[in-house]
Amino acid sequence: MNQQTIKVDGMTCGGCAAGVTRALQAVAGVAEVQVDLASKAVTIRFDGDAQPAAWQQAVENAGFDVIG
């Protein structure tokens, strides 16, 4: 299982974190999502088939922005 952390702008509450989590969990290959709201860090655990570009698209479709 691989892991990567991304920064997500626009998350201000638990509802935002839940929305980002749901969006990322819907992406093929994503096994687990952990959100640290204070630092805006989202850690994604995934198998080898995961597509990081799909993560960004999922986050943007949920109304947030990936930083960096």
Rank of each mutant, 00 (worst) to 15 (best):
M1W: 13
M1P: 07
M1S: 10
M1T: 07
M1C: 07
N2I: 04
N2A: 11
Q3R: 10
Q4G: 10
Q4P: 04
Q4A: 05
Q4T: 10
T5H: 10
K7Q: 14
K7H: 12
V8A: 12
D9F: 01
G10I: 14
M11F: 08
M11D: 06
T12P: 07
T12H: 13
T12S: 13
T12N: 02
G14L: 07
G15N: 04
G15T: 02
C16D: 15
C16R: 01
C16L: 09
A17I: 09
A17E: 15
A17Q: 07
A17L: 08
A17G: 10
A18Y: 13
V20W: 15
T21E: 15
T21H: 06
R22L: 08
R22E: 10
A23H: 05
A23L: 08
L24G: 05
L24M: 06
Q25D: 15
Q25V: 06
Q25E: 15
Q25T: 15
A26P: 06
A26T: 03
V27Q: 03
A28G: 05
A28M: 03
A28L: 00
G29C: 06
G29T: 10
V30I: 11
V30W: 14
V30M: 07
A31H: 12
A31S: 09
A31L: 12
V33E: 01
Q34C: 05
Q34E: 15
D36T: 10
L37Y: 02
K40S: 12
K40F: 08
K40W: 07
A41N: 11
A41P: 09
A41C: 08
A41T: 09
A41Q: 12
V42A: 11
V42N: 13
T43L: 13
I44V: 12
R45S: 15
F46I: 03
D47N: 10
G48R: 00
G48C: 00
D49W: 02
D49I: 05
A50S: 06
Q51H: 07
Q51K: 08
Q51M: 03
A53M: 03
A53Q: 06
A54E: 15
A54H: 04
W55G: 02
W55I: 09
Q56I: 03
Q57H: 01
Q57N: 03
Q57C: 01
A58H: 05
V59L: 07
E60Y: 00
N61I: 02
N61L: 04
N61W: 01
G63M: 09
G63I: 08
F64L: 14
I67H: 11
I67E: 15
I67M: 09
I67G: 11
G68C: 11
G68Y: 12
G68H: 11
